Simulated assay, not measured.
Amino acid sequence: MKDILKKLREGEITEEEAEREILRRLSGEVEGKAVLDLFRDFRTAVPEVVLGEGKTLEEMGAICLKFLLSRGEVALTRVGEEEVERLKELFEEALEGFERRFNLRYNPRGRVLTVRRLDLAPEALGNVILVTAGTSDIPVAEEARTLLEFYGARAETFYDVGIAGVHRLRPVVEAVERGGYQVALVFAGREGALPTLLSALISIPVIGVPVSSGYGHGGGGEAALSTMLQSCSPIAVVNIDSGYTAAMVAIKILKASRGGVGNVKK
Rank of each mutant, 00 (worst) to 15 (best):
A184Y: 00
G208E: 06
E174V: 01
E174Q: 14
G208M: 00
E21M: 12
I13G: 08
E143C: 12
V161H: 04
S226K: 15
A164I: 09
L57W: 12
E83H: 10
E92W: 02
L254H: 01
L125T: 00
R170C: 07
Y181R: 00
I4H: 05
I207V: 14
R109N: 12
E10Q: 14
K266E: 06
A184R: 10
R43P: 01
S242D: 13
V161K: 00
S242M: 11
V128G: 02
E58F: 15
V30P: 04
V172I: 11
A188E: 00
G192N: 03
T77R: 14
L185W: 09
L38Y: 01
L23W: 06
E83D: 15
E48Y: 04
E73T: 01
V264Y: 07
S233I: 07
D37R: 14
L118F: 01
E48W: 08
G72K: 04
E48A: 10
A224I: 11
E73R: 11
L185S: 02
H167A: 07
H217W: 12
R9I: 11
V264E: 10
G52M: 12
L185Y: 05
F67I: 00
A45C: 04
E92G: 06
T77A: 13
I251L: 15
E58I: 00
S199P: 02
E156K: 11
V211M: 06
G218W: 02
F67Q: 06
L198E: 04
E177F: 00
E58Y: 15
N127V: 10
A34L: 08
L57C: 14
A246M: 05
L201H: 03
E48R: 08
G28F: 07
T196R: 05
I63N: 04
E93F: 11
H167P: 02
G80H: 12
E174D: 15
Q182R: 13
R100Q: 15
L51N: 13
V30C: 09
C232Q: 07
R40K: 15
K66F: 02
E21R: 09
V183C: 06
E177S: 12
